[in-house]
C-alpha cells in the first residue's frame, strides 16, 4: 500500500512539473498579453493541483491520524487554488482589456478597435465611424469584383 502511494505521488508530482514547464515556457515565449494569460491560467492551475495531490499521497503513505488531517489540509489548498486561480486570471484579463492592451494580430495593428472595446474614448468614436464607413463599401466592392472575375473565369 505504501509503495503504491509512493509511486502515485511521484507520477503526480512529475506530471505537475511537466505542466508547470509548459506554463513557464508559454509565459516567456508567447507574443501577446492575452496568450500569455492563456498559458499562465491553465498551466499554473493544473500543475498546482497535480503537485499538491502528489504531496497529499506522499503524506498519506505512512498512515496516521495526524497525517490524515495534514492530507485533508493539503487537499483544501488544492481546492482553494482551483477556485481562486481562474478567478484572479479572469479579473486580471478583464483589467487588461479595460486598460486597452491590444491583441496580437497578423497585420500588427490590433483588432480590438473593430470589436468595439469598452476603452474607446468619445473623441475617437467619430474617427472610428468614419474609418468603418470608408472601409465597409470598399470591401464589398472589391469582393463583388473578385466574385465577378471568378465567375467570368469559371464561365
Amino acid at each position: 500500500m505504501d509503495d503504491i502511494l509512493n509511486i502515485l505521488s511521484v507520477i503526480l508530482i512529475f506530471s505537475g512539473l511537466i505542466f508547470f514547464m509548459g506554463a513557464s515556457v508559454g509565459l516567456i515565449r508567447f507574443p501577446d498579453f492575452y496568450t500569455r494569460m492563456h498559458a499562465a491560467g491553465k498551466g499554473d492551475t493544473l500543475s498546482t493541483i497535480l503537485i499538491t495531490a502528489g504531496m497529499a499521497a506522499q503524506v498519506l503513505s505512512h498512515f496516521d491520524v495526524v497525517s490524515l488531517f495534514v492530507a485533508i489540509k493539503i487537499v483544501a489548498i488544492a481546492v482553494l487554488i482551483m477556485l481562486t486561480s481562474p478567478t484572479s486570471t479572469h479579473l486580471l484579463m478583464k483589467a487588461g482589456y479595460d486598460d486597452g492592451i491590444e491583441p496580437f494580430t497578423n497585420s500588427g495593428k490590433g483588432g480590438i478597435i473593430e470589436l468595439g472595446g469598452p476603452f474607446i474614448k468619445s473623441d475617437q468614436l467619430d474617427d472610428i465611424d468614419s474609418k468603418v464607413k470608408k472601409k465597409g463599401p470598399s470591401k464589398k466592392k472589391s469582393s463583388s469584383k473578385k466574385k465577378s472575375v471568378t465567375e467570368k473565369n469559371s464561365s
Binding site: 509565459l27 499562465a40 486561480s85 486570471t89 486580471l92 492592451i101
Partner: peptide, 10 residues
C-alpha cells in the same frame, strides 16, 4: 505591461 508583471507574481 503592468498586468503582465502581476500575472507573473501571481
Amino acid at each position: 505591461t503592468a498586468i503582465d508583471r502581476i500575472v507573473a507574481v501571481n
